[in-house]
């Protein structure tokens, strides 16, 4: 480092400084501000502020803790009742809710006194969740004779022997009950002749609640004219 380089560095700083002018009254301003700020009791307010911050933080943490405890205890409320029932967890639920069951299931003729190959399954199921849609699977069989001559000696007669398998959906009422009368659809082999006389049997009908898996035999119906 030569003397001239030393001088040039100083000149560079000096040039920069010449571009900046010190704020007027800076000395008085700084001294006055310091005395004004130092005149305030610097220690206590700082400590008080610190204490206040610590207290506020403690309060917040405590409140958060209490809220969490409450949140934990809220869901823990029901468990105590479960805990008391825990020796037999499943049985207590069963007596309180009525069991799902069929109280009635049978097959009847579609029209009293006029058997034209139409029958229907009638059933009642209770203990269901109110408003729930229940799907039923109905099976059975028919062994029928369709007499297109309406019982006359010369009319053609057609036997129909088929399994029956169909589904239907019903919605439980507010009591949790489904009372349904579901027409059994005509078998596929039914002749097209108008108003035949039908004799025979609707056999072994079973109604199954596919939601709960409960089944009820609906029996059958014999038609003999």
């Amino acid at each position: 480092m030569t003397e001239s380089q030393h001088r040039r560095i100083a000149d560079a700083f000096r040039h920069d400084e010449s571009l900046r002018e010190a704020p007027a009254g800076l000395r008085d301003e700084v001294v006055a501000a310091v005395m004004e700020r130092s005149a305030r009791p610097a220690g206590p307010p700082r400590y008080l502020a610190l204490v206040a911050v610590v207290l506020a933080a403690t309060l917040i943490v405590t409140m958060i803790g209490l809220l969490r405890l409450r949140d934990r205890s809220t869901p823990a409320g029901p468990p105590p009742t479960r805990v008391t029932a825990s020796p037999a967890p499943t049985p207590p639920a069963t007596p309180t809710a009525p069991p799902v069951r069929f109280t009635d299931a049978h097959v009847e003729s579609a029209r009293t006194g006029q058997l034209r190959g139409q029958a229907r399954v009638v059933f009642t199921e209770t203990g269901l969740p109110p408003g729930q849609a229940i799907s039923y699977h109905i099976t059975g069989a028919v062994d029928l004779l369709y007499d297109c001559g309406r019982g006359g000696p010369s009319g053609p007669a057609y036997p129909v022997r088929e399994p029956v398998d169909f589904t239907a959906t019903r919605t439980a009422d507010t009591e949790g009950t489904v009372s349904a009368t579901i027409a059994i659809p005509p078998p596929a082999g039914v002749p097209a002749c108008p108003s035949p006389v039908v004799t025979g049997d609707w056999l072994n009908f079973v109604v199954e609640d596919t939601t709960s898996g409960i089944r009820a035999p609906a029996g059958g119906l014999n038609v003999a004219t």
């Binding site: 000395r27 001294v31 310091v34 005395m35």
Partner: peptide
């Protein structure tokens, strides 16, 4: 003890040089 004149006498002369230093 809060004597502004004393503080000014002590630090005052260095206020502007300190500003130039900080500005640089």
């Amino acid at each position: 003890r809060g004597d502004a004149d004393a503080f000014d006498a002590l630090i005052g002369p260095w206020i502007e040089p300190a500003w130039r230093f900080a500005a640089a």
